[in-house]
Design a protein around this nucleic acid. Sequence first.
DNA 1: TATCTAATTTGACAATAGTCTAATTATTAT
DNA 2: ATAATAATTAGACTATTGTCAAATTAGATA
Lengths: 192, 192
Amino acid sequence: MQLNKLVQFNRALSDPNRVRILAMLSSGPKNGLEIADALGLTPPTVTHHIKKLRDINLLTEKKEKNCIYFYIKESVLMHYANSITSTILKGGINTMEEEKNSLEARIKHFFTADGRLKNLPSQRKKKLWVLYFLAGKFVLGVKYSEKEVNESIKTFHEDYATIRREFIITGIMHRENGIYELNPKEIWEVIQ
Amino acid sequence: MQLNKLVQFNRALSDPNRVRILAMLSSGPKNGLEIADALGLTPPTVTHHIKKLRDINLLTEKKEKNCIYFYIKESVLMHYANSITSTILKGGINTMEEEKNSLEARIKHFFTADGRLKNLPSQRKKKLWVLYFLAGKFVLGVKYSEKEVNESIKTFHEDYATIRREFIITGIMHRENGIYELNPKEIWEVIQ
DNA sequence: TATCTAATTTGACAATAGTCTAATTATTAT
DNA sequence: ATAATAATTAGACTATTGTCAAATTAGATA
């Protein structure tokens, strides 16, 4: 995780009411007025807090009639929390500069001359690099059927099922009712 | 962990320079001027930040000539970070009220009528309660020899060695050059 | 269409926080 | 004792933040 994200995450959890909101949501989705009511805040204040939590991807929302129900993304919370120690202690902050070499350069030897993926690396970090690259073939905001996802992956590798599954596991994509969609990059960074 | 502590911890890590300080210290102790220099800050500003980190027990300090060397307490950092998720997700925040019944009431059946400890409970939480109680027999700020610690524990139980060891493991006490001293209660709460 | 209801935006205000300079204290060295 | 070095305190300034009231937008319902 980079310094910026770590600070932003901690800043988000540095207000009692925001932590209370997350705690509330952990027992089920709530809409804005419910939150305002439970915490004795006005709707604008809740909007203000929600914005900060949304900014770091801690929330999903679902519209229902004219209410917006907020859900906590527990996995994102966990990934942030779990990254704190390693980021600070394992020198993750100062070594960040070295990561600047391009993604393509790092993964090119996993591909054949004609651009096919030889095989998905087993080493975690390298596997992620390859997945990030493959994810670049999908467009943010576009919804894909499973078949479309498979087809796209197949242009790189036969075992589309494994890679499609990895997209979900890593948080690069999410699936809802059989429809696949890319997650914004900010999520990947968190999920690593 | 209680809401208050969680917020205070996150607030402490919500400034880039403070996170940088912790990251620096993770590779070894530094004194104030070194920190100021490395971060391009003035000494007063470093003092300001150090104070916040010290307030939540994230630092130890050691005087050497007329410098103060700051050390990061990695275990405390880890305990805080590891508590975030469980505190927020496992309902740890709303259930806090129930813990209000007194320590003595909770542990009295581990003691005989004449006040001796029957045995140290094996269940984590109960063991901690007993240890907290026994710790109450020592005075904050007073340094004790190992022998003194043993004697004091022996008035409650024969196996002073185990209990003395537990004092260290749990963070209730710390030892330096064979001298034992109680940690302030704030540490216990963190270490749990 | 008109009317609710829910959420957001805007603007204001007080409180807090990060930073600095200048002055002070405390410790070590001359 | 005096000078030097390191850390803290005090005070000031600006930027940020949490909060609210009022106005606005967006959806659903009548």
